[in-house]
Design a binder for these strands. Structure first.
Lengths: 204, 204
DNA sequence: GAACTCAGTTAATGATCACTAACAATACGT
DNA sequence: ACGTATTGTTAGTGATCATTAACTGAGTTC
């Protein structure tokens, strides 16, 4: 029996298993981004990790569970990151600029998972879809809380719309080809500036 | 034998067939947007049009052909629309504002096809993927031609990146839920303003 | 109105997978 | 060392689904 559920990597086997799980999630992200969820068989996923097909069931209860782990994970990561930069304080504009920077860095660092989230959210079973949406609502609330201060005259719906538009802008990195000729630092600055302009501009 | 390939709807049967084809494409757009390409069987698609399964083969050579017709069609529509507003002349800024307005209206009018394009482009067979990408390159060139005049110091890659970011912003309408509480005219104005701000802002 | 075309039907067929079963080998705990 | 737990293996199994076959009936043409 396991002595303690909280003990991470108590034994060699546990360590190996955790590593295998991470490998599977990483490969799944890569493969789903390239071929789509339906275009990747468990055989493919296993093979990418050096194991074969049904062995995946030792780590996930089925194919949907892999997608769930990916999407819940990324939603939690973004929410946690967003909370961190929000907690650092400052005025609404300063906080928003940090949120933009955080989101930009995330999109530049992990374009494939952003792509999977954008494309395959609807593929989730209803229960998990709800969970992910709840996490996303919490994340977007971090943005809209600040946006309300910047645009006090705008309705909730409009503010939320602004945030979605900014996400679309920033997540576009994930879809546009990554030309190695342009430095990531340059793109980072450009994206930050474009998103800030879009979010702060007043519509009259 | 058909008297003339160019005669549209010469007979009742031709008219009915053209209508059925349109219905199939419309339903395919709707269903693919909701359930994804892989999540819709030809049986489903046929049923949505009141015919059943294999009858779809009277109109398309197979399931991929349906997606191809959709995506090539939308790419052609956008390119044609973009060319029209570009041809109307004016300065770079005026043309860009018209491009933004055109794209905004398109995204607001046909969110489902935008969604299908964003999600399922990669699903296309290689040959057709090339065609669609070529059309998209032509469309984006309409934007970058003007952007180069606005930002003469920026490289091709950066300019293209700006355009992609703007598309991401504008296409976000297709993904964010359509709240009926906010008027489309209001969203239209907001999107136009946000996109213009993002495209025109200078990065220093 | 006779010959033909063609959109539709239902009934196979065949491939692809997700998932299960039965078994093998190795690591773990005592 | 010994029994157990666990990760992996290879063979099924069953469902789904794109596609084909054979046929039907109505519209089109001459």
């Amino acid at each position: 029996m396991k002595a303690n559920g909280k003990d991470l990597a108590a034994t060699d086997r546990d360590r190996a298993k955790a590593q295998r799980r991470e490998d599977l999630l990483a490969e799944a992200t890569r493969l789903f981004a390239i071929h789509g969820y339906a275009g990747v068989s468990l055989e493919d996923l296993g093979a990418a990790c050096g194991i074969s097909g049904p062995a995946v069931y030792r780590h996930f209860s089925g194919k949907p569970a892999v997608l769930i782990a990916l999407l819940v994970g990324v939603s939690e990561d973004m929410l946690e990151g967003g909370r961190k930069v929000t907690a650092a304080g400052g005025g609404a504009e300063a906080i928003l600029r940090r949120l933009i920077a955080f989101h930009t860095d995330f999109a530049l660092a992990r374009p494939d998972i952003i792509q999977v989230q954008d494309r395959h959210l609807v593929t989730l079973p209803a229960a998990e879809l709800q969970l992910v949406r709840k996490l996303q609502r919490s994340y977007i609330a971090l943005w809209t809380d600040q946006l309300h201060q910047i645009h006090p005259e705008e309705t909730n719906a409009v503010i939320r719309f602004r945030a979605h538009a900014a996400f679309g802008l920033l997540n576009s990195t994930a879809h546009s080809a990554h030309s190695p000729r342009t430095s990531k630092a340059g793109l980072r600055k450009l994206l930050n500036q474009m998103a800030a302009s879009a979010l702060f501009t007043r519509v009259g």
